[in-house]
Design a protein around this nucleic acid. Structure first.
Lengths: 224, 224
DNA sequence: GCAATGAAAAGTGCATACAGATTCATCGCA
DNA sequence: TGCGATGAATCTGTATGCACTTTTCATTGC
């Protein structure tokens, strides 16, 4: 089987998963425009597969909200306008705020310790300017917050939202000085959580995301 | 002449949609137990369809979080335990709080007026004890709050969460005196929104859902 | 010239078929 | 007896085919 250029993402094994990612990327990057029809036959030939996996991918994209579906109609690209993007970042900030607030109230002693340790350890990455590594740490850090809220459904929502925003945030740590800023903001959150100050933790997390949102908006528009 | 037929609500037409609902119901009602394997062939024969629509339904259920999926593995029913259910109600309360808070800040004059009018009108239903009608009004009322937040992504999340909780809330208005209580709570929310008091609106909405959660928990456990 | 009509083209929904992966029981061997 | 290998049974992943629905476009009637 030939998979020449289809490997660009990650080897997720199943064809459908690859297509979901590929099409999702095309939508968020603007390669597919809002309102555009996605007929199964064209997609099938474009990806060199049959219609069956295409249909499953479209159904998943529909569940993700990236395409609209109606019976006996072609799937159409959902309008991921600037305002919608903004609404996702705002929602993300709210969710992060909730997670941080609940984390401040509910994290176990072990979770708090692990969070602080991980956070302190990241200072080294800031100093050495290791963007890639810091990005990985950043993901880990936020995941700890999501877990610390001890609420499965909130975890789901925030994880999914983050996934949908991922394409828009890729380059954020390339901005000069963003690493150090990020560390400082994390510091605010960690300290609030350590002293179980839920209000402060929530607010710190909220503005942390709001700042990232602004930073990413630069790239989103610049990328066009 | 553009006022053609509208069959969106009841007639879901497509087999897959029906199966998604049916299986989702079986999961939340406990007819399918957490961890249970859902092999496509059995489901296909059970619903008297081929495997193709079954697969699409499973994929959608996977996206909804009701079943877990891994490549070359049977789908398994996600653990919708009591604690998970609680987490969904808690998340719902947070989301409603956000919506009410943002509504207090952002609703247009028209939206505020419509909300208040609709709310006042529901008093009649409380007095006559029309449970069914009040339930319909209740849905409308909350939808107004979700819309009033003017945030598409929050709207999506709260709508989806409400949909997933729907099976657990069906009988809530049968509880004696719940109608009047609900009206009172709505009143708190509406008044706060009318005077643009975002904090009060958020808190009122949060506790409103928390109360519904308690009321529904009675039925959830009683139904077993 | 324009709207109504209807038939062909195009597309979706579902069924069936087949290839590859996984599971499980059986057998051989130490 | 215990343990690992092996092959069949079972199931998932994908391709293909057919029926039905929607859309398009040309034709006809006014």
């Amino acid at each position: 089987m030939k998979q020449a250029r289809r490997r660009e993402v990650i080897r997720t094994g199943t064809t459908v998963e690859q297509m979901v990612r590929a099409i999702a990327d095309m939508i968020v990057t603007g390669a597919l425009l809002p309102g555009e029809k996605l007929d199964e036959i064209s997609l099938a030939s474009r990806f060199e597969v049959s219609r069956t996996p295409v249909r499953e991918a479209l159904r998943e994209l529909g569940a993700m909200g990236l395409v609209g579906r109606e019976p006996n109609r072609s799937a159409v690209v959902t309008n991921v306008t600037e305002t919608h993007l903004h609404s996702m970042f705002e929602a993300m900030a709210e969710l992060e705020g909730i997670c941080a607030r609940l984390s401040a109230e509910r994290m176990t002693v072990d979770e708090r310790r692990a969070l602080e340790l991980d956070h302190r350890g990241s200072m080294r990455l800031v100093h050495s300017g290791a963007e890639e590594e810091y990005a990985a740490h950043n993901t880990e850090f936020h995941t700890r917050l999501y877990r610390g809220a001890h609420n499965d459904h909130v975890f789901e929502m925030v994880t999914q939202t983050r996934a949908r925003l991922a394409p828009f945030r890729r380059a954020q740590f390339r901005l000069p000085g963003r690493l150090a800023k990020s560390y400082e903001e994390h510091d605010q959150i960690v300290m609030a959580i350590m002293r179980a100050d839920s209000v402060a933790a929530g607010q710190a997390a909220y503005s942390h995301v709001a700042i990232v949102s602004d930073a990413s908006a630069v790239f989103a528009t610049a990328g066009e």
